[in-house]
Design a protein around this nucleic acid. Structure first.
Lengths: 215, 215
DNA sequence: CTTTTCGCCGATAGTACTATCACCGAATAA
DNA sequence: TTATTCGGTGATAGTACTATCGGCGAAAAG
């Protein structure tokens, strides 16, 4: 059980959180350009060199930030999908399953853009980590699609489902970016389009397999 | 002997093309990390400082490279779509309309990744230019979708079509990345998924009436 | 022809940030 | 208590690249 006074471990953890928080705040306000070790540490009220007590470099911090974000929003998104699966006739729950990810992406625009960009970076550990997280996210979506009744009973269909999950994710990101850019001001219209795309491919996938009752 | 003397204009243009070519070759071989003014100029056989005779900076060169790529592949892609529109019953022509963009994206992987990343960069002129090109590409796709019979007769439907074009593009990019990453080795399967997604949303748009009900 | 223009060159100042080092002092262990 | 650990600090060397400058010589202009 933790003591009331700050142990070394607790104090260090607190400083680390301050650094992560400062980095996210700087992303939200100054953008990616403001992300220098000096700037982050100044914003956190500690010395620049202390940065290296907690992280190997800035990319290491960003990797940790991404992990934490995934740990926080991942379950929320999956729960929204679960609720839709629990009540397949509810249009609103289906919409929520698409709306929740959109809103999470839009919560920290610069961090979202940075995360997406990182995935296209083949050269750095940050890119590697971003792709690993994306793969995990995709796997979760595949699981949820299977739970929703989509077929993955053959290797071909499993891969197909993976591609569908990939497509759904990339389209959700595209809608989020369009919304953030001001091109799609109404987020409900973004949800409309996502639901329409998904309904189409869902019908295709279900029609693909032997009839197993009503759809 | 042939007159090898080039006019100033011709010589300068040749040097510029050499620089552009070297940059693309370096992207294909060494990747983005090799893209320094010195490296590009060495590869082109000219002095590093000469770089600035032709471009303001590296981003300026990349912007020019993007413009040239768009000028070259844009018409090819549009022609594939046109051929599909000309014969709407041909499944193969529809597939080609999705396959051609995929192949063009995969022709220069690193340049492709760089271009996509640039779009998510809010801070630099290169990002600005990349988004402008993406908007033009989207507008062309909207035109082609209208030519293929999709409705854009109201502002709402026009925006909806814009979102669909956005979604189709982002999904095509996702399939290209998946293919380049080795996750989707068979490009025909990528085409399958794109066609399936598109068929679904196409049916929705054609069957949809003014009041888009929730669901 | 003379003069001007300008594409190319070699050399280098500038740049702002990263990452390391030795050290301090409080928490912890003995 | 004494000894040890370790999170935090100030100072600074390192870094590799960018972008500019004056000069040269051939093309273009007059």
């Amino acid at each position: 059980m933790p003591d009331v006074t700050l142990s070394r471990r607790e104090a260090k953890d607190l400083t680390r959180r301050r650094l992560l928080g400062s980095a996210l705040r700087i992303l939200d306000t100054e953008g990616e350009a403001g992300l220098s070790t000096g700037n982050v540490c100044r914003s956190a009220g500690i010395a620049q060199s202390t940065f290296y007590v907690h992280f190997r470099n800035m990319q290491d911090l960003l990797e940790a930030l991404g992990e934490e974000a995934a740990r926080q929003v991942g379950p929320v998104i999956r729960e929204a999908r679960q609720r839709s699966s629990d009540e397949p006739r509810s249009a609103e729950r289906l919409r929520a399953a698409f709306r929740v990810p959109l809103e999470k992406m839009c919560a920290h625009p610069e961090f979202f853009r940075l995360s997406v960009r990182a995935r296209f970076d083949r050269a750095t550990p940050l890119g590697e980590a971003a792709r690993r997280r994306a793969a995990a996210t995709r796997a979760h979506l595949v699981e949820d699609l299977v739970a929703a009744g989509l077929p993955a009973d053959t290797p071909e269909r499993a891969l197909r489902l993976e591609m569908v999950a990939d497509g759904v994710t990339s389209m959700t990101e595209a809608m989020a970016i369009g919304h953030l850019d001001g091109r799609y001001p109404d987020i409900e219209e973004c949800v409309d389009v996502l639901v329409a795309f998904f309904a189409g491919v869902r019908a295709q996938l279900l029609g693909d397999q032997p009839a197993s009752g009503q759809g």
